[in-house]
């Protein structure tokens, strides 16, 4: 692949790298795993880049490739296996942990999101990124109605985390 293509790709990736970081943040729980997944997504994006047509936005395209890599293609490397948890905290919620402050609520919510399964995380991620249900359904390959139903279930699940 020519240098020009490589250059344009790296420039675009550098500009939109936050999308990949956010995917990694959701799907990994330590620094090494984060970097590992980041690299795999970058490789997948680069491999697919020659076929990328400007008709969809680069960022929209990144969401799809990023999530596909995280939930389907990525095979955890030995390096990324670690017992250390995200932020060094246990993802367990006790009644004593419950606090009314927003900060505490957020902490609980992040923990709860980390405990969701891969598909639920993908839904939450796209929702948090302000994607509409059409885009969510197209990214995951499910119907819009089912995406909405599942999202409502997740919302309820997360609500109960705050009101156990």
């Amino acid at each position: 692949m020519n240098k020009e293509l490589e250059h344009s790709f790296v420039e675009l990736l550098e500009k939109h790298q936050n999308i990949i970081h956010k995917v990694c943040r959701l799907y990994t729980n330590n620094y090494d795993a984060h970097n590992d997944l980041f690299q795999e997504i970058t490789i997948q994006l680069w491999k697919a880049y020659p076929k990328f047509r400007g008709d969809s936005k680069f960022s929209t395209w990144m969401y799809r490739v990023g999530l596909n890599t995280a939930i389907t293609l990525y095979r955890k490397s030995k390096r990324s296996i670690s017992t250390q948890n995200f932020d060094g905290v246990e993802f367990k919620i006790n009644a004593e942990d419950y606090d009314d402050t927003e900060e505490q609520q957020l902490k609980l919510l992040y923990k709860a999101v980390h405990n969701l399964n891969d598909i639920e995380k993908a839904l939450v991620f796209l929702y948090l990124e302000d994607k509409d249900y059409r885009e969510i359904s197209e990214t995951l390959g499910i119907s819009e109605v089912n995406a909405r139903v599942k999202m409502n279930r997740i919302k309820t699940k997360l609500k109960t985390v705050l009101n156990p």
Binding site: Q17, D36, F38, E40, T42, I43, W46
Partner: peptide, 13 residues
């Protein structure tokens, strides 16, 4: 980012 493009993929495919 540049060196990442030439690293080996660990994809299941």
């Amino acid at each position: 980012i540049y060196p990442m493009l030439h690293k080996k993929s660990s994809s299941i495919v």
